[in-house]
Design a protein around this nucleic acid. Sequence first.
DNA 1: ACGTGATCATCC
DNA 2: GGATGATCACGT
Length: 225
Amino acid sequence: MPTSPASVTELLERCALIAGLTLGQLAAQLQVPVPADLRREKGWTGQLLEMALGATAGSQAVQDFPELAVELKTLPIDQYGKPLESTYVCVAPLTGATGQQWQESWVCRKLSRVLWLPVLAERHIAPAERIIGQGFLWQPSPDEAALLQQDWEELMELIAFGRLDQIKGAHGKVLQLRPKAADSKALTAAIGPDGRPVQSLPRGFYLKSQFTAAILQQQFALAHR
DNA sequence: ACGTGATCATCC
DNA sequence: GGATGATCACGT
């Protein structure tokens, strides 16, 4: 069981070591069973790679590598390097976050330094055969940060004014709000249209795949110039 | 129930 | 084919 990396350099070295391996090969090294599909283990890939890299946070609400201030995100991609899914960031505070500033938000902090780890994960490829790509460290550019902040402020304002029901996944340019729950019947406290407390479906912030696609494109260009 | 890891399944 | 809403497992 890998220990937690002492530095960002060491973390990136570990990424280089596993790049090119299949998930099956890595799972064998770590003595982890591989599911035939991910229908009942949707987080399996992320948890396997957390283990391989020595992440310690588990299900705690902190970054994956707290000492390094690095958040790990696996990114399922197709053969052309395009993301297959949006990227979950964190749960959305539906109460008690009115007046919060962007810089102190959970979204901002989690996205301040991300280790992206692409995995070739087209659906026709069995989990064991999926190939680990080259991980890389990313920090939002000023432009990217501005886009994220704008979307976050817009969504948080709607939440604070009790307009949660009007928020669809289509809201936001790069950041979206979508259900994040066991099922559509899950309930959590939120603010109603009249400002009074109501119960509603828990939501999470997600990065739209077009945004992560741009990050990958930029990284690809950097790596090949 | 909440937050972690996300992908599934269906609709357009 | 891509995006949106729904869902699965686990630890706390």
